[in-house]
């Protein structure tokens, strides 16, 4: 299905086309967006982008895991995980765009 993967470079190219900034500055702005979002998440904050989706941090408690290959039990430490919940609009667009 996927024939082309979008990267930072494509995002900065889109910013470059949209606003009359240099390619270099466009790239820095994309980077700074991701950094601000990451920093908020690391602080435990939710990042809620209307009509896009919500990133939230969840605490997972310790549990006993198992190595699926060897069957060996291994303790899994408590950890924080990031979840993304797409907005209704994004779900709709992705569903509509990929419908045959």
């Amino acid at each position: 299905m996927s024939d082309k993967t979008l990267t930072r470079m494509d995002l900065s190219e889109a910013v470059f086309r949209e606003v009359g900034l240099s390619r270099n500055e466009s790239a820095q702005l994309v980077e700074s967006m991701l950094e601000h979002m990451s920093d908020a998440l690391v602080k435990g904050e939710q990042v809620k982008i209307s009509s896009f989706g919500t990133f939230s941090v969840r605490d997972k408690s310790a549990r006993i895991g198992r190595n699926p290959k060897t069957g060996e039990e291994v303790p899994i430490q408590p950890r924080r995980v990031l979840t993304f919940r797409p907005s209704h609009l994004m779900k709709e667009k992705v569903a509509d765009g990929n419908r045959k």
Binding site: S2, L6, L11, L34, F52, K93, G97
Partner: peptide, 14 residues
Amino acid sequence: EITGTMAQGNRVEL
């Protein structure tokens, strides 16, 4: 851009 890329069935890798 991210939403549009996914709507075309493509991935965004950051």
